[in-house]
């Protein structure tokens, strides 16, 4: 009876995913059909309503993984190692989508798909650094070593997040400075904000499910029978 309860899906992540889908449906409908085109970018500016929310949430997911790395190294609880893995995987997915959306937006506006501008370069570094950490986790068999190494690597790779943020200020770049409510027409706020919450809810639901998956794997590899868990920790 206990086991059946364990294997039932948790409800909260599904509520969040549903909420996220609703927000994204409304925000994208508004962004695609209701909001006016931009004065110079025309219709193409509508890509902003997915691109900017993706950027915010990608950095948020990676920041969550960074916090998990610190907590894991503090208390050694593998629950945080599972959450770190979840945050990185979802963060990498969003960072990849960010680069693709950016390229699709850049072609009709800047005139090129890609250039090695500081913002684009540091974002690509972020994507590949965390992709590397996911690969590292695949190749390290020992869960304790895997946990420590990936937490250390996450803390080091995280320096790139403030660098991505400041890249447009520190160096001259093709990518524009951060927008603010003052530089964006109020007609564009609704799709931007609704989609930002949409991706936030969706991402949170995904991270919760993904962390659960990682925890189930931990249970299988670290502690085949649950009572051996203590000894497995001791051996490390």
């Amino acid at each position: 009876m206990h086991e059946t309860a364990n294997n039932r899906y948790p409800v909260l992540p599904f509520i969040l995913i549903g909420l996220g889908v609703l927000c994204l449906a409304f925000g994208s409908y508004f962004g695609l059909f209701v909001a006016p085109p931009e004065r110079y970018m025309g219709e193409v500016q509508r890509i902003m309503y997915v691109h900017v929310p993706t950027a915010w949430n990608a950095l948020l997911a990676i920041t969550f993984a960074f916090v998990c790395a610190i907590v894991f190294l503090f208390n050694g609880n593998f629950k945080w190692d599972a959450r770190l893995e979840a945050g990185i995987e979802v963060g990498v997915l969003l960072a990849f989508l960010l680069c693709v959306q950016g390229a699709i937006w850049a072609k009709p506006t800047w005139g090129v798909w890609w250039d090695w501008d500081p913002r684009l370069t540091t974002t690509a570094v972020l994507l590949f650094a965390f992709l590397g950490i996911l690969a590292l986790r695949k190749f390290v068999e020992d869960p304790v070593k895997r946990g420590i190494w990936s937490a250390v690597a996450t803390i080091i790779a995280y320096v790139d997040v403030p660098i991505v943020y400041f890249s447009v200020r520190w160096w001259n770049s093709l990518h524009q400075l951060q927008s603010s409510p003052a530089t964006v027409s109020s007609q564009f706020y609704i799709p931007l904000r609704v989609n930002a919450f949409g991706i936030l809810f969706l991402m949170t639901g995904f991270i919760m499910l993904r962390a659960r998956l990682a925890s189930l794997r931990h249970v299988n590899e670290i502690a085949p029978p649950p009572m051996m868990a203590e000894e497995a920790g001791e051996l490390a």
């Binding site: 593998f78 937490a151 925890s215 670290i222 649950p226 920790g233």
Partner: peptide, 28 residues
């Protein structure tokens, strides 16, 4: 739940990992 059963590391490991964390922050 399964999540609750995930093991904790020993005290010895935790002491060691804090040095790892300091090192990581220094490099960063």
């Amino acid at each position: 739940s399964a999540v609750m059963n995930t093991p904790h590391a020993s005290d010895a490991m935790r002491r060691r990992t804090r040095y790892f964390m300091l090192g990581a922050f220094l490099v960063a």
